[in-house]
Nucleic acid binder design. Structure first.
Lengths: 142, 142
DNA sequence: ATATACATTATAATAATTCTAAACTATTGA
DNA sequence: TCAATAGTTTAGAATTATTATAATGTATAT
């Protein structure tokens, strides 16, 4: 049984048709040990260069958003100029390396639960996210 | 003494020439009781509509970035499609109202100090920011 | 098999931001 | 004071990320 069958089933489960492009993207995104953080551009590069597959940019956008809507991917706000996505869709926090522009998950055990003592009236909390910006220690860059 | 003198001095202090446009923007941004959160677009609207002043969009971008570089403004990452800025440049946290797209400062007393137990080796922490997304309580929107 | 609804694609459109180069202005110092 | 110069503003073009469009292609249920 090829590894793809797995993804075909998973896609079907959430109501996404298992098209060639979606299965291919699943392979890139979810055949991994660790969480994967990427921009749309990263993904297009990986598919076209590393996998030598032709895929339309629009399809990558469509598919990433379809995955996001179905809970396969999560968008992370770090940079106002690019969208970052994360294959770890659970609530968790991040380091952002300002030198390399890399996102790194913060281990659950390495941060205490955030407690907001006063909420805005009439509003409910949808999410609490911490972003820790880090940079090289031996340079004095902003 | 007109209130502008204040800003002319302040601009000079950080090495920014007190041009007409910069002083005007200071008035809009810093003549306030409370922290002000805005997008470039908000600012252009305020200047052109409320103040009935002609200012180039490029100048607003230039000037906001000049202010940011000199520590008068701080950029906040919430949305990948727009840049938000904050007149409160100290380290602090935010609510983001997903209904109205408004940013609201979290009072220092309403959140405990965030403690990161394990940092990335060779990196120093530049900032720790919490973003709490809230939305209307009586609707079941994402 | 085939109709149908959904996907993919190339390309155009849009939106936010940055660049460019010419005109303008604050500052410096003769 | 006033010209030189260094930095600023401006309109518009260019760039970049993203979304829309409409034609073609494909998965799925009957």
């Amino acid at each position: 049984m090829p590894k793809n069958c797995n993804f075909i089933e998973k896609l079907r489960e959430v109501g996404l048709r298992p098209t060639k492009q979606r299965v291919k993207m699943c392979e890139v995104l979810f055949n991994r040990e660790k969480t994967f953080h990427f921009t749309i551009n990263d993904l297009v590069k990986i598919i076209s260069e590393k996998m030598n597959e032709k895929i339309s940019l629009a399809t990558v956008y469509n598919t990433v958003h379809a995955f996001e809507k179905k809970g396969y991917l999560k968008e992370i706000s770090i940079d106002s100029h690019k969208s970052y996505f994360d294959t770890n869709t659970s609530a968790h926090h991040h380091f952002f390396d300002e030198d390399t522009h890399q996102l790194i998950d913060i281990d659950k055990n390495d941060i205490d639960k955030i407690n907001i003592k006063k909420n805005i009236s009439g509003k409910k909390i949808n999410s609490i996210e911490v972003l820790v910006r880090v940079a090289s220690d031996n340079q004095n860059q902003k």
